[in-house]
Amino acid sequence: MTDRRTLLALPMLLAARPGRAQDGFPNRPITVVSGYAPGGVTDVTSRAVAERMSREFGVPVVVENRVGGATAVANTAVAQARPDGYSLLMGTTSLAINPGLQPSLTPREPMRELAPVGMVFRSAFVLHVHPDLPVRSTAELIAWCRANPGKLDFGSSGTGAVNHLALALFAQRAGIQVTHVPYRGGAPALLDLRAGRIQAMFQAVLEALPSLAEGTTRGLAISSAGREPLLPEIPPVAEVLPGFDAVFWQGLFAPAGTPAPILARLGAALRVATEDADLRARLAQQGVALITGDAEALGGLLARETALWGRLIQEAGIRPD
């Protein structure tokens, strides 16, 4: 039977739950803004994580898609929002790329204008080639390119896309020359790769799986530092080019100036979501590896990649289309 002391202590116990606070945060819906269209892996992951955070907070956490300007529309909307914890951004690698590739886009200084909350996921690319190309490993591909400089047509989903920068980093580290062929998205690039009109590309694992299974393309390497659970037999590029790690990532941000206690509550709820075993297993089937990383980890990643991609963009002379 519940005694009087337990009843008196109940409000304090509820306030101590993750996401609950004596000041009432959150006491109304939270909006998470995404710069990507509905239906893709980024959107699906955002909604799954937001739904799990909703359960933790006891208020709706809704995803709002604001597409445009290489995610600058979404990024800027949150950077300029009231710093009260109710407007958040599912930021991605574009935050690290845009300052170097398109410095006119806002926010011009994401590390100063946004406050990191925590990591959400990392997604690797697979380096795959047309089967007519006479190579079966990363080392053989590098050797072929050195013997045939500029003759390999290497596709991407667009100039400045993460898989284009992965290609540029690969070519720079390997000391090879290839011909970059940009497309408007990964799907048309894959069609040309399957048809042999281009010979290679880095592509999101989930998008490449059917072609790899059919044998219409051949997988050589994974772009992340470790192996990909969906393709455990394919080694990472890093086994040939030590330190190579080029992935698409997503993290949760708030406007700069958001009070530290609110950031901490948001981070705690996000941690619960990214550690949820059922959610991790469900998203892993789509090639998404949920990651638990705090605000410091996300801020450090953004700083490192802003420097990495900015330097690469400058050295390789990459310009937006």
Score class of each variant (00 low, 15 high):
185 G>E: 08
160 G>T: 11
155 G>P: 04
43 D>Y: 14
42 T>K: 07
185 G>Q: 09
94 S>V: 08
115 A>Q: 15
133 L>V: 05
100 G>I: 03
181 V>L: 05
76 T>H: 15
85 G>M: 04
154 F>C: 02
168 A>C: 11
86 Y>I: 01
187 A>M: 02
102 Q>C: 04
137 S>R: 09
101 L>V: 09
64 E>T: 13
113 E>R: 15
163 N>H: 11
155 G>Y: 06
55 R>Y: 00
184 R>I: 09
152 L>P: 12
130 H>N: 15
107 P>F: 12
153 D>K: 13
61 V>Y: 03
90 M>C: 06
114 L>N: 12
135 V>W: 10
66 R>F: 10
164 H>Q: 05
106 T>K: 15
160 G>E: 08
186 G>S: 07
139 A>W: 07
178 V>T: 13
68 G>R: 13
74 A>C: 07
51 E>D: 11
49 V>H: 06
161 A>Y: 12
83 P>G: 02
46 S>I: 00
186 G>H: 06
169 L>M: 15
150 G>A: 12
60 P>Q: 03
152 L>M: 14
68 G>T: 09
128 H>N: 15
110 P>C: 05
125 F>R: 02
149 P>N: 10
100 G>L: 03
133 L>R: 08
79 A>W: 10
174 A>W: 14
96 A>N: 11
111 M>Y: 00
180 H>I: 00
144 W>G: 01
145 C>I: 03
56 E>V: 11
50 A>C: 05
122 R>E: 10
166 A>K: 04
42 T>I: 14
187 A>R: 03
53 M>E: 05
104 S>L: 12
121 F>A: 12
169 L>P: 00
74 A>R: 05
181 V>D: 02
99 P>N: 08
45 T>S: 10
109 E>N: 11
77 A>C: 01
181 V>M: 04
104 S>F: 15
166 A>E: 03
136 R>I: 00
101 L>D: 03
89 L>V: 02
98 N>R: 13
77 A>D: 10
128 H>K: 08
51 E>P: 00
187 A>T: 02
174 A>V: 09
77 A>W: 12
166 A>H: 05
95 L>G: 11
80 Q>M: 06
84 D>G: 07
65 N>M: 07
138 T>V: 07
68 G>K: 13
97 I>V: 15
80 Q>N: 09
128 H>F: 14
120 V>Q: 04
135 V>H: 04
81 A>V: 10
58 G>I: 06
186 G>W: 08
84 D>A: 06
154 F>K: 01
124 A>E: 07
167 L>D: 06
156 S>N: 04
95 L>M: 13
141 L>Y: 06
159 T>N: 13
160 G>S: 12
89 L>E: 01
66 R>D: 07
61 V>R: 08
88 L>T: 03
179 T>M: 00
95 L>S: 15
138 T>I: 01
91 G>D: 03
43 D>S: 13
152 L>N: 13
73 V>K: 14
121 F>D: 10
81 A>W: 14
152 L>A: 13
120 V>L: 12
139 A>E: 12
84 D>Q: 10
113 E>F: 11
78 V>E: 14
117 V>M: 11
92 T>M: 10
96 A>E: 11
52 R>D: 01
145 C>E: 14
128 H>V: 00
55 R>P: 00
118 G>Y: 04
48 A>P: 00
167 L>N: 06
109 E>Y: 13
186 G>N: 05
143 A>T: 06
120 V>F: 02
82 R>A: 10
